[in-house]
Amino acid sequence: MALDFSIILRFQEALLLGLWMTVKLTLICIVLGCSLGFFIGLARTSRSALLRAVSSVYVEFFRGTPVLVQLFWIFFCLPLILGVELSNLTSGVIALTLYMGAITSETFRASLKSIGPEQLDACVALGLPRRVQVTNVILPQAVLRAVPTLLSNCVSLFKESALVSAVGMADLMFVGQNISNNTARPIEVLTVVALIYFLIAFPLTRAVTLVERRVLTKLAI
């Protein structure tokens, strides 16, 4: 069987549209998911037992179930429960944001925990009010320490986002699948799709290592 990669060029535009959908979905869910994750991370270390319980049920549930199942549930069950139609994009955003919120909350929780109690002692000894302790000492360190892991969380999200093709969202994976079905050229098409994912994800994973090294050398007291 002769390989003919030139057919890809005919579908360039469709693939680009699919890629744009994937990137858009990923970026939206990174912003929403990280913000959600930060507050959930705080809630999990909160003094209120109720907040701790609610947030940990949420996190454990989303970490302990397949993303594909979560997607199907949000796409098919949530509209029934709410009694409203949700667009594909809305459902995809909700599902992946909840997933991203769960995994990044663990990242934030770990980084909050890695700030030693001696930092708080220093804050008290300097008479810093609680607000200043949080905004000038704890938050910046927590975010800095979280950055490398957050970047890998983003890479995971980017890759996991391909699952939305299973519920009919026209992302890169969905478009690739369609083209491959219609042209009966799965090898060429799916290889190119894989390459596109890789060319975006690989530099990001390299960046994680670089950033990690820089953050660690900076924060090592």
Partner: peptide, 22 residues
Amino acid sequence: QHYTLFPHLSVIQNLILAPCKV
């Protein structure tokens, strides 16, 4: 006994944080 400087701040920022904020 243990180092308690704020690692994300430069030396001068460590010194001026409390006077400015408190």
